[in-house]
């Protein structure tokens, strides 16, 4: 735990965040007093054993779920003070999402899926930016296809493009390559890396894969709902090593 950066200037941050499921005997502390922040323009990986609270942390940071106690901030805004409408706007404008699967609305084409957050907000699509994003994920020839006509890797690329299209403050990705073969996974990861390094995007990604984590600038380790360790500029060997130590 080296970070002492004031949480308010980070792209996103959690302050003494706790999330408790159930009551009394069946109580589960999915997050236990977590304090962590994610610097702008950085690619952060979150790792940890299954059930350690990675997804929970992400959902809370993104305003998808609420904490039991503590605070989360996105771009300096305390999410606990927001109502449903404000959270909706925040998700639409400040946050991007990439899930492990089922990222896309099955009835819309790839292009429509990509521009959906913009369309929902009634925001004019920035055509140059869109073209750049689309060509970066190599989807030019697939834009009119429905999700059911795309491969898993292509679907994930659409999801990444969607997350980028609205130029959010921060993108959360929960095991974005979990369902993919290593080659498609590598494509996605290098594209996310490119988005951070060259386009200045902030990305937080949950992963179980040390190779994937090596694409990040920083790796945060969770165990039993607590932040237990972190590495900056990791290599896959380092990550693997640390994971072994954590006993996962």
């Amino acid at each position: 735990m080296t970070s002492t950066t004031p949480t308010l200037v980070a792209a996103a941050a959690a302050l003494n965040a706790s999330k408790i499921y159930g009551k009394d005997d069946s109580e589960v502390r999915a997050l236990d007093d977590v304090t962590v922040d994610f610097t702008e323009g950085q690619f952060t990986a979150i790792m940890g054993p299954s059930g350690s609270g990675k997804s929970t942390l992400m959902h809370c940071l993104a305003g998808l779920d609420t904490l039991s106690s503590g605070k989360v901030f996105v771009d300096g805004t305390d999410l606990s003070g927001l109502n449903d409408r404000e959270l909706t706007v925040l998700r639409r404008e400040q946050v991007g999402f990439i899930f492990q699967a089922y990222n896309l609305i099955p009835t819309l084409t790839a292009l429509e899926n990509i521009t959906l957050p913009l369309d929902l907000g009634g925001v004019e699509v920035d055509q140059t930016w869109l073209n750049e994003v689309v060509s970066a994920v190599k989807l030019e020839s697939r834009l009119t296809h429905r999700p059911s006509e795309l491969s898993g890797g292509q679907q994930q690329r659409v999801a990444v493009a969607r997350a980028l299209a609205s130029r959010p403050k921060i993108i959360f990705a929960d095991e974005p390559t979990g369902n993919l073969d290593s080659r498609s996974g590598a494509e996605i990861l290098s594209f996310m890396r490119h988005a951070v390094s060259d386009l200045g995007q902030t990305i937080v990604m949950v992963t179980h894969d040390p190779v994937a984590a090596a694409y990040a600038d920083r790796v945060v380790f969770l165990a039993d709902g607590k932040v237990v360790d972190e590495i900056t500029s990791p290599t896959s060997e380092q990550v693997l090593d640390r994971m072994k130590k954590l006993g996962s």
């Binding site: 998700r91 991007g96 899930f99 959906l116």
Partner: peptide, 16 residues
Amino acid sequence: LRELALLRAIGASSLQ
């Protein structure tokens, strides 16, 4: 449910 929740997650308001 999943589709609607996804829409909500990426910023559709409940009114929409």
